[in-house]
């Protein structure tokens, strides 16, 4: 699974640390998700979508 979190986060001007705090995760988790090293749970994916104001299907997509 791939994602556009890094691109959308940069467009919104949010730092990794701030995004991590907003979704209740650690910065390492955000880094791993952005680099496609870890697939988040549905709950975390929906929280990310909420914070980044993007539908979850536009944030994550199957290869």
């Amino acid at each position: 699974m791939r994602n556009d979190i890094k691109k959308i986060r940069k467009e919104l001007g949010i730092r990794q640390e701030d995004l991590a705090n907003l979704v209740g995760a650690t910065r390492q988790t955000i880094i791993a998700i952005e680099n496609d090293k870890y697939n988040p749970s549905l709950e975390l994916a929906m929280r990310l979508a909420q914070v980044l104001k993007t539908p979850v299907e536009n944030l994550f997509f199957l290869e």
Binding site: G24, A25, T26, Q28, T29, A32, I33, Y38, P40
Partner: peptide, 10 residues
């Protein structure tokens, strides 16, 4: 000492 998040648990 924050509780682990989901990736740390994994």
């Amino acid at each position: 000492c924050k509780p682990m998040d989901e990736m740390e648990t994994h």
